[in-house]
């Protein structure tokens, strides 16, 4: 027993670091940043470099967090790719085309996100069709509806909105002309979702549902309620990014957002979340998002061929999955006591 208390007094032992799900991702982040810092030089290490990758990271990061929760719970959400433009378009039509106050447009846009999330969750728990298929379906449905309504109401596939100063400051300003306020929102989402997954008891339910859905149900976890709620959270976050984009770029495009589908999944997987569910961490997802954004923007600063960038991202993804597997095995075999 005395050994047990020994190990407690060294909280940062090698074992306890290796046991953390984000261990592999952190190594990846350091390697990637060093690589591009060398190639990209002073500009990349300075404010222009940081702002460019942080701006990218913030937008995809807000989506990646709830997508990561879903993946830990054993589900996927492809529909985020069309919820983003649907939300921008809704807010732009309500507040730009019809000239209602910005807050009305924002509430309507977030409502669209929650609704799509609810439909996703409902279909997944009701039919038990794999969520990949369900959310591909809702993605196309939402994309079609967005295009249809945009053309029907505004007669165009892009709608403009000039936000009032307060809205612009809160949701679409660039601090120092470089850093988009979205990164504070990303930080806010990260803290809230960290609390949900790692501090509140709900986090235990999410891991259990992803680990063994049937046992979780037998253990009394409201699996259906939880699944629907997580989909609504992801719809909400995607809609929020749609609003941020609209307030930043002051126009809504029907076709924006497809890149978020793969990018969000990539951030989550690079961040050490198990594709099949049951394991992952919010710190890991944040690290994965930063890694992804650094590669994405580092290519530009280092003057490498963009095709090389895609190659690096692909290799990174494979490397991340392999190293995460290794670290997970370490964690499983890890015991505080050797004897």
């Amino acid at each position: 027993m005395s050994r047990q208390s020994d190990s407690r007094s060294f909280p940062v032992s090698l074992g306890s670091i290796a046991r953390r799900p984000e261990a592999g991702s952190l190594v990846g982040l350091v390697i990637v940043y060093t690589f591009f810092a060398i190639l990209g030089g002073a500009v990349f290490i300075g404010a222009p470099g940081w702002s460019s990758w942080l701006n990218i990271a913030a937008e995809v990061g807000i989506v990646a967090l709830p997508v990561g929760l879903l993946m830990i719970a054993g589900e996927l959400d492809i529909s985020v790719g069309s919820v983003i433009p649907a939300s921008s378009m809704t807010a732009a039509i309500v507040s730009g085309h019809y000239e209602l106050p910005a807050v009305v447009g924002i509430v309507a846009a977030l409502g669209v996100g929650l609704l799509v999330g609810f439909v996703n969750g409902y279909l997944v728990v009701r039919t038990r069709i794999p969520s990949l298929i369900v959310t591909i379906g809702t993605m196309f449905a939402v994309m079609g509806l967005t295009l249809g309504f945009a053309v029907l109401i505004s007669g165009s596939t892009s709608v403009f909105l000039v936000p009032d100063p307060v809205t612009k400051t809160v949701l679409g300003a660039f601090i120092g002309g470089m850093f988009n306020v979205s990164m504070f929102w990303w930080a806010g989402f990260a803290v809230a979702i960290f609390y949900l997954l790692h501090v509140s008891p709900i986090g235990n339910w999410i891991f259990a549902v992803g680990g063994d859905r049937e046992s979780a149900h037998n253990a009394g976890i409201p699996v259906k309620w939880l699944t629907v709620s997580l989909y609504m959270l992801s719809g909400f976050a995607a809609a929020f990014v749609g609003v941020l984009q609209l307030m930043t770029y002051q126009s809504a495009q029907v076709a924006a957002g497809q890149s978020f589908i793969f990018n969000s999944i990539m951030c989550v997987v690079i961040g050490g979340v198990l594709l099949t569910g049951g394991a992952g961490s919010v710190i890991g997802i944040v690290i994965g998002t930063m890694t992804f954004a650094i590669v994405n923007q580092g290519i530009f600063f280092s003057g490498l061929d963009p095709n090389v960038g895609s190659l690096i991202i692909g290799a990174l993804l494979l490397g991340a999955v392999l190293s995460n597997d290794t670290f997970r095995k370490l964690a499983l075999n890890y015991a505080t006591k050797k004897s």
Binding site: V199, N204, F207, D212, S215, A216, A219
Partner: peptide, 30 residues
């Protein structure tokens, strides 16, 4: 069959669905 979750800790496994909490109101902490 089942009943345990391999990638969760012993403590978390034991209390799945009946988590002990501390704190108050909506700020309950596992």
């Amino acid at each position: 069959f089942g009943g345990t979750y391999p990638l969760m800790s012993i403590g978390r496994n034991f209390f799945v669905g009946a988590e002990p909490t501390k704190g108050w109101g909506p700020f309950k902490v596992f």
